[in-house]
Design a binder for these strands. Structure first.
Lengths: 156, 156
DNA sequence: TATACGAATGCAATAGAATTGCAATCATTG
DNA sequence: CAATGATTGCAATTCTATTGCATTCGTATA
Protein backbone atom coordinates (compact mmCIF):
# COMPACT_ATOMS: atom_id res chain seq x y z
CA UNK A 1 0.00 0.00 0.00
CA UNK A 2 3.05 2.16 0.28
CA UNK A 3 2.24 4.92 2.67
CA UNK A 4 5.29 6.44 4.25
CA UNK A 5 4.34 8.51 7.22
CA UNK A 6 6.69 10.80 9.00
CA UNK A 7 4.87 11.91 12.09
CA UNK A 8 7.74 13.19 14.17
CA UNK A 9 9.71 16.12 12.87
CA UNK A 10 7.94 16.57 9.59
CA UNK A 11 6.61 19.92 8.49
CA UNK A 12 3.03 20.44 7.45
CA UNK A 13 3.90 20.34 3.84
CA UNK A 14 5.25 16.83 3.77
CA UNK A 15 2.68 15.68 6.30
CA UNK A 16 -0.20 16.84 4.14
CA UNK A 17 1.50 15.47 1.12
CA UNK A 18 1.70 12.04 2.73
CA UNK A 19 -1.88 12.18 3.91
CA UNK A 20 -3.13 13.03 0.45
CA UNK A 21 -1.08 10.21 -1.02
CA UNK A 22 -2.46 7.73 1.46
CA UNK A 23 -6.04 8.77 0.76
CA UNK A 24 -5.66 8.75 -2.99
CA UNK A 25 -3.89 5.43 -2.92
CA UNK A 26 -7.05 4.02 -1.49
CA UNK A 27 -9.45 5.80 -3.80
CA UNK A 28 -10.63 8.25 -1.19
CA UNK A 29 -10.89 11.84 -2.21
CA UNK A 30 -8.76 13.98 0.10
CA UNK A 31 -11.28 16.37 1.59
CA UNK A 32 -10.39 18.64 4.51
CA UNK A 33 -12.40 16.57 7.01
CA UNK A 34 -10.78 13.36 5.90
CA UNK A 35 -7.35 14.87 6.07
CA UNK A 36 -7.98 16.11 9.59
CA UNK A 37 -9.22 12.75 10.80
CA UNK A 38 -6.36 10.91 9.19
CA UNK A 39 -3.86 13.39 10.57
CA UNK A 40 -5.07 12.69 14.09
CA UNK A 41 -4.85 8.97 13.58
CA UNK A 42 -1.29 9.35 12.41
CA UNK A 43 -0.02 11.83 14.94
CA UNK A 44 -1.66 10.42 18.06
CA UNK A 45 0.24 7.16 17.74
CA UNK A 46 -2.60 5.15 19.17
CA UNK A 47 -6.01 3.68 18.56
CA UNK A 48 -8.69 6.33 18.74
CA UNK A 49 -12.37 6.09 19.43
CA UNK A 50 -14.95 8.16 17.62
CA UNK A 51 -15.41 10.28 20.71
CA UNK A 52 -11.68 10.88 21.09
CA UNK A 53 -11.40 12.04 17.51
CA UNK A 54 -14.47 14.19 17.99
CA UNK A 55 -12.84 15.90 20.95
CA UNK A 56 -9.55 16.34 19.15
CA UNK A 57 -11.31 17.95 16.21
CA UNK A 58 -13.91 19.96 18.11
CA UNK A 59 -16.20 21.45 16.88
CA UNK A 60 -16.24 19.14 13.91
CA UNK A 61 -19.42 17.13 13.48
CA UNK A 62 -19.51 13.72 15.09
CA UNK A 63 -21.56 12.06 12.39
CA UNK A 64 -19.25 13.30 9.69
CA UNK A 65 -16.29 11.81 11.53
CA UNK A 66 -18.29 8.63 11.96
CA UNK A 67 -18.89 8.38 8.25
CA UNK A 68 -15.34 9.35 7.47
CA UNK A 69 -14.14 6.43 9.57
CA UNK A 70 -16.59 4.13 7.82
CA UNK A 71 -15.10 5.26 4.53
CA UNK A 72 -11.61 4.61 5.82
CA UNK A 73 -12.57 1.10 6.88
CA UNK A 74 -14.33 0.36 3.63
CA UNK A 75 -11.37 1.52 1.61
CA UNK A 76 -8.71 -0.23 3.63
CA UNK A 77 -7.12 2.81 5.25
CA UNK A 78 -8.15 1.84 8.76
CA UNK A 79 -9.81 -1.03 10.48
CA UNK A 80 -12.14 -0.94 13.41
CA UNK A 81 -11.49 -2.80 16.58
CA UNK A 82 -14.52 -3.85 18.58
CA UNK A 83 -13.16 -4.23 22.05
CA UNK A 84 -15.70 -6.45 23.73
CA UNK A 85 -17.92 -4.31 25.90
CA UNK A 86 -15.56 -1.35 25.71
CA UNK A 87 -16.60 0.38 22.52
CA UNK A 88 -14.86 0.63 19.20
CA UNK A 89 -11.58 2.18 18.27
CA UNK A 90 -9.97 2.71 14.92
CA UNK A 91 -6.45 1.86 13.89
CA UNK A 92 -4.53 2.58 10.75
CA UNK A 93 -4.04 -0.45 8.64
CA UNK A 94 -0.47 -1.61 8.46
CA UNK A 95 1.11 -1.69 5.04
CA UNK A 96 0.46 -5.37 4.55
CA UNK A 97 -3.25 -5.05 5.18
CA UNK A 98 -4.98 -6.45 2.16
CA UNK A 99 -7.57 -4.17 0.70
CA UNK A 100 -10.47 -6.60 0.76
CA UNK A 101 -10.08 -8.24 4.13
CA UNK A 102 -7.93 -5.99 6.21
CA UNK A 103 -7.62 -7.65 9.53
CA UNK A 104 -5.78 -7.11 12.70
CA UNK A 105 -5.54 -10.43 14.35
CA UNK A 106 -3.51 -9.74 17.39
CA UNK A 107 -5.05 -9.20 20.81
CA UNK A 108 -5.98 -5.78 22.07
CA UNK A 109 -5.55 -4.72 25.62
CA UNK A 110 -8.30 -2.61 27.18
CA UNK A 111 -7.29 -0.81 30.34
CA UNK A 112 -10.28 -0.67 32.63
CA UNK A 113 -8.75 2.28 34.40
CA UNK A 114 -7.71 4.70 31.65
CA UNK A 115 -9.95 3.06 29.01
CA UNK A 116 -7.23 3.16 26.38
CA UNK A 117 -7.09 0.34 23.91
CA UNK A 118 -3.68 -0.69 22.74
CA UNK A 119 -2.37 -3.33 20.41
CA UNK A 120 -0.38 -5.97 22.14
CA UNK A 121 1.53 -7.79 19.51
CA UNK A 122 3.88 -9.01 22.17
CA UNK A 123 1.10 -11.11 23.66
CA UNK A 124 1.40 -13.88 21.16
CA UNK A 125 -1.63 -15.95 20.40
CA UNK A 126 -1.70 -18.67 17.87
CA UNK A 127 -4.33 -20.87 16.42
CA UNK A 128 -3.43 -24.42 17.23
CA UNK A 129 -6.07 -25.30 14.77
CA UNK A 130 -7.84 -22.88 12.49
CA UNK A 131 -11.46 -23.87 12.27
CA UNK A 132 -11.30 -26.74 9.86
CA UNK A 133 -14.91 -27.12 9.00
CA UNK A 134 -15.61 -25.30 5.77
CA UNK A 135 -19.07 -24.39 6.98
CA UNK A 136 -17.96 -21.61 9.25
CA UNK A 137 -17.43 -18.44 7.27
CA UNK A 138 -15.09 -16.19 9.17
CA UNK A 139 -15.09 -12.47 8.61
CA UNK A 140 -13.15 -11.17 11.52
CA UNK A 141 -11.53 -12.22 14.72
CA UNK A 142 -11.39 -10.04 17.81
CA UNK A 143 -9.29 -10.80 20.82
CA UNK A 144 -9.67 -8.52 23.78
CA UNK A 145 -7.75 -8.67 27.01
CA UNK A 146 -9.17 -6.56 29.80
CA UNK A 147 -7.21 -5.41 32.79
CA UNK A 148 -4.95 -2.62 33.97
CA UNK A 149 -2.19 -1.32 31.76
CA UNK A 150 1.41 -0.82 32.94
CA UNK A 151 1.03 2.97 33.05
CA UNK A 152 -1.97 2.80 35.37
CA UNK A 153 -0.40 0.04 37.43
CA UNK A 154 2.64 2.24 37.96
CA UNK A 155 0.52 5.14 39.17
CA UNK A 156 -1.17 3.09 41.85
CA UNK B 1 -45.62 -13.51 37.22
CA UNK B 2 -45.81 -17.17 38.09
CA UNK B 3 -45.96 -18.85 34.72
CA UNK B 4 -43.68 -21.83 34.85
CA UNK B 5 -42.62 -23.03 31.47
CA UNK B 6 -41.48 -26.57 31.04
CA UNK B 7 -39.96 -27.01 27.63
CA UNK B 8 -37.74 -29.97 28.38
CA UNK B 9 -38.56 -33.56 29.09
CA UNK B 10 -37.96 -33.36 32.79
CA UNK B 11 -40.83 -32.88 35.12
CA UNK B 12 -41.25 -29.62 36.95
CA UNK B 13 -40.48 -31.14 40.26
CA UNK B 14 -36.96 -32.33 39.60
CA UNK B 15 -36.20 -29.35 37.37
CA UNK B 16 -37.21 -26.91 40.05
CA UNK B 17 -35.40 -28.90 42.63
CA UNK B 18 -32.17 -28.69 40.66
CA UNK B 19 -32.65 -24.99 40.01
CA UNK B 20 -33.16 -24.28 43.67
CA UNK B 21 -30.08 -26.29 44.55
CA UNK B 22 -27.97 -24.42 42.06
CA UNK B 23 -29.16 -21.06 43.34
CA UNK B 24 -28.71 -21.90 47.00
CA UNK B 25 -25.36 -23.47 46.36
CA UNK B 26 -24.25 -20.03 45.20
CA UNK B 27 -25.90 -18.09 48.00
CA UNK B 28 -28.69 -16.73 45.83
CA UNK B 29 -32.16 -16.84 47.24
CA UNK B 30 -34.43 -18.80 44.89
CA UNK B 31 -37.08 -16.27 44.01
CA UNK B 32 -39.59 -16.94 41.23
CA UNK B 33 -37.91 -14.51 38.84
CA UNK B 34 -34.50 -16.02 39.41
CA UNK B 35 -35.85 -19.50 38.91
CA UNK B 36 -37.48 -18.53 35.64
CA UNK B 37 -34.34 -16.90 34.29
CA UNK B 38 -32.17 -19.80 35.33
CA UNK B 39 -34.63 -22.28 33.87
CA UNK B 40 -34.39 -20.58 30.50
CA UNK B 41 -30.63 -20.59 30.61
CA UNK B 42 -30.67 -24.30 31.34
CA UNK B 43 -33.34 -25.40 28.89
CA UNK B 44 -32.38 -23.28 25.92
CA UNK B 45 -28.97 -24.93 25.71
CA UNK B 46 -27.32 -21.79 24.41
CA UNK B 47 -26.01 -18.39 25.30
CA UNK B 48 -28.81 -15.91 25.75
CA UNK B 49 -28.85 -12.16 25.56
CA UNK B 50 -30.86 -10.01 27.90
CA UNK B 51 -33.31 -9.28 25.12
CA UNK B 52 -33.73 -12.94 24.28
CA UNK B 53 -34.48 -13.79 27.89
CA UNK B 54 -36.84 -10.84 28.04
CA UNK B 55 -38.77 -12.20 25.07
CA UNK B 56 -38.82 -15.73 26.45
CA UNK B 57 -40.21 -14.48 29.74
CA UNK B 58 -42.55 -11.81 28.42
CA UNK B 59 -44.05 -9.84 30.10
CA UNK B 60 -41.42 -10.01 32.83
CA UNK B 61 -39.58 -6.78 33.49
CA UNK B 62 -36.36 -6.22 31.57
CA UNK B 63 -34.56 -4.44 34.36
CA UNK B 64 -35.36 -7.17 36.82
CA UNK B 65 -33.91 -9.73 34.45
CA UNK B 66 -30.91 -7.48 33.98
CA UNK B 67 -30.30 -7.33 37.69
CA UNK B 68 -30.97 -11.02 38.07
CA UNK B 69 -28.26 -11.73 35.55
CA UNK B 70 -25.91 -9.38 37.38
CA UNK B 71 -26.59 -11.36 40.53
CA UNK B 72 -25.87 -14.62 38.72
CA UNK B 73 -22.58 -13.27 37.45
CA UNK B 74 -21.59 -11.89 40.83
CA UNK B 75 -22.34 -15.17 42.51
CA UNK B 76 -20.68 -17.40 39.98
CA UNK B 77 -23.77 -18.98 38.48
CA UNK B 78 -23.26 -17.44 35.07
CA UNK B 79 -20.69 -15.37 33.31
CA UNK B 80 -21.23 -12.70 30.73
CA UNK B 81 -19.69 -12.77 27.33
CA UNK B 82 -19.02 -9.44 25.65
CA UNK B 83 -19.02 -10.31 22.02
CA UNK B 84 -17.08 -7.47 20.52
CA UNK B 85 -19.53 -5.01 19.02
CA UNK B 86 -22.32 -7.57 19.03
CA UNK B 87 -23.80 -7.18 22.47
CA UNK B 88 -23.56 -9.36 25.53
CA UNK B 89 -24.82 -12.83 26.19
CA UNK B 90 -24.89 -14.89 29.33
CA UNK B 91 -23.74 -18.44 29.77
CA UNK B 92 -24.02 -20.80 32.68
CA UNK B 93 -20.75 -21.36 34.41
CA UNK B 94 -19.40 -24.85 34.00
CA UNK B 95 -18.90 -26.77 37.18
CA UNK B 96 -15.22 -26.02 37.36
CA UNK B 97 -15.75 -22.28 37.17
CA UNK B 98 -14.06 -20.82 40.18
CA UNK B 99 -16.29 -18.59 42.21
CA UNK B 100 -14.09 -15.53 42.27
CA UNK B 101 -12.83 -15.37 38.73
CA UNK B 102 -15.19 -17.41 36.65
CA UNK B 103 -13.91 -17.22 33.15
CA UNK B 104 -14.72 -18.65 29.82
CA UNK B 105 -11.59 -18.45 27.80
CA UNK B 106 -12.53 -20.14 24.60
CA UNK B 107 -13.54 -18.22 21.48
CA UNK B 108 -17.13 -17.31 20.76
CA UNK B 109 -18.60 -17.31 17.34
CA UNK B 110 -21.00 -14.52 16.45
CA UNK B 111 -23.14 -15.18 13.43
CA UNK B 112 -23.68 -11.90 11.63
CA UNK B 113 -26.76 -13.35 10.02
CA UNK B 114 -28.77 -14.90 12.83
CA UNK B 115 -26.90 -12.98 15.56
CA UNK B 116 -26.57 -16.02 17.75
CA UNK B 117 -23.46 -16.34 19.84
CA UNK B 118 -22.15 -19.81 20.38
CA UNK B 119 -19.19 -21.27 22.18
CA UNK B 120 -16.68 -22.86 19.90
CA UNK B 121 -14.46 -24.97 22.04
CA UNK B 122 -13.51 -26.93 18.96
CA UNK B 123 -11.74 -23.88 17.58
CA UNK B 124 -8.68 -24.36 19.67
CA UNK B 125 -6.64 -21.35 20.58
CA UNK B 126 -3.58 -21.47 22.68
CA UNK B 127 -1.36 -18.91 24.18
CA UNK B 128 2.08 -19.45 22.78
CA UNK B 129 3.21 -17.07 25.43
CA UNK B 130 1.07 -15.73 28.22
CA UNK B 131 1.95 -12.10 28.75
CA UNK B 132 5.13 -12.38 30.70
CA UNK B 133 5.47 -8.88 31.97
CA UNK B 134 4.06 -8.68 35.48
CA UNK B 135 2.90 -5.15 34.87
CA UNK B 136 -0.17 -6.11 32.89
CA UNK B 137 -2.99 -7.03 35.22
CA UNK B 138 -5.40 -9.26 33.37
CA UNK B 139 -9.02 -9.52 34.42
CA UNK B 140 -10.65 -11.17 31.49
CA UNK B 141 -9.99 -12.35 27.99
CA UNK B 142 -12.57 -12.29 25.24
CA UNK B 143 -12.12 -13.94 21.88
CA UNK B 144 -14.77 -13.31 19.31
CA UNK B 145 -14.95 -14.75 15.83
CA UNK B 146 -17.44 -13.07 13.53
CA UNK B 147 -18.88 -14.65 10.47
CA UNK B 148 -21.70 -16.89 9.32
CA UNK B 149 -22.61 -20.01 11.23
CA UNK B 150 -23.13 -23.42 9.59
CA UNK B 151 -26.90 -23.24 10.01
CA UNK B 152 -27.13 -19.95 8.14
CA UNK B 153 -24.61 -21.06 5.56
CA UNK B 154 -26.74 -24.12 4.85
CA UNK B 155 -29.84 -22.00 4.31
CA UNK B 156 -28.20 -19.83 1.70
C1' DT C 1 -49.99 -11.72 65.66
C1' DA C 2 -48.29 -7.23 64.47
C1' DT C 3 -44.26 -4.75 63.14
C1' DA C 4 -40.05 -3.60 61.18
C1' DC C 5 -36.34 -4.20 58.09
C1' DG C 6 -33.76 -5.54 54.20
C1' DA C 7 -34.10 -7.79 49.79
C1' DA C 8 -36.38 -8.07 45.46
C1' DT C 9 -39.25 -6.18 42.03
C1' DG C 10 -41.51 -3.01 38.61
C1' DC C 11 -41.77 1.23 36.42
C1' DA C 12 -39.92 5.57 34.87
C1' DA C 13 -36.23 7.79 33.37
C1' DT C 14 -31.51 8.72 31.93
C1' DA C 15 -27.08 8.05 29.52
C1' DG C 16 -24.48 6.97 25.71
C1' DA C 17 -23.21 4.82 21.39
C1' DA C 18 -24.59 3.65 16.83
C1' DT C 19 -27.17 4.83 12.96
C1' DT C 20 -30.36 7.02 9.63
C1' DG C 21 -32.79 10.83 7.01
C1' DC C 22 -32.61 14.87 4.90
C1' DA C 23 -31.44 19.25 3.33
C1' DA C 24 -27.57 22.29 2.17
C1' DT C 25 -23.15 22.70 0.20
C1' DC C 26 -19.20 21.53 -2.61
C1' DA C 27 -16.67 19.76 -6.69
C1' DT C 28 -16.56 18.22 -11.17
C1' DT C 29 -18.23 17.45 -15.77
C1' DG C 30 -20.78 18.30 -19.90
C1' DC D 1 -23.61 27.97 -16.48
C1' DA D 2 -26.43 23.89 -15.36
C1' DA D 3 -26.63 19.30 -13.75
C1' DT D 4 -25.11 15.60 -11.07
C1' DG D 5 -23.09 13.05 -7.49
C1' DA D 6 -20.27 13.27 -3.34
C1' DT D 7 -19.67 15.33 1.09
C1' DT D 8 -21.08 17.59 5.11
C1' DG D 9 -23.92 19.25 9.14
C1' DC D 10 -27.87 18.95 11.86
C1' DA D 11 -31.89 16.67 13.77
C1' DA D 12 -33.71 12.72 15.14
C1' DT D 13 -34.14 7.81 16.09
C1' DT D 14 -32.89 3.32 17.79
C1' DC D 15 -30.95 0.28 20.95
C1' DT D 16 -28.39 -1.14 24.93
C1' DA D 17 -26.90 -0.30 29.44
C1' DT D 18 -27.82 1.69 33.75
C1' DT D 19 -29.80 4.25 37.74
C1' DG D 20 -33.46 6.07 40.99
C1' DC D 21 -37.21 5.36 43.51
C1' DA D 22 -41.37 3.70 45.34
C1' DT D 23 -43.75 -0.61 46.19
C1' DT D 24 -44.01 -5.29 47.46
C1' DC D 25 -42.33 -9.49 49.52
C1' DG D 26 -40.20 -12.50 53.00
C1' DT D 27 -38.48 -13.15 57.27
C1' DA D 28 -37.02 -12.32 61.79
C1' DT D 29 -38.40 -10.25 65.95
C1' DA D 30 -41.05 -7.57 69.56
Amino acid sequence: MGHVINNSQSNNYSMNSNIIKLLEHNDVKPTPMRMLVLEQMITQHRNLSLTEIENLLYPADRVTIYRTLQTFVKNGIAHSIDAAGSGSVYALCPGGCSHEAHKDEHPHFVCENCKKISCCTDFVFSFLQKPNTPKYVIYKIEMTIKGICPECTAKQ
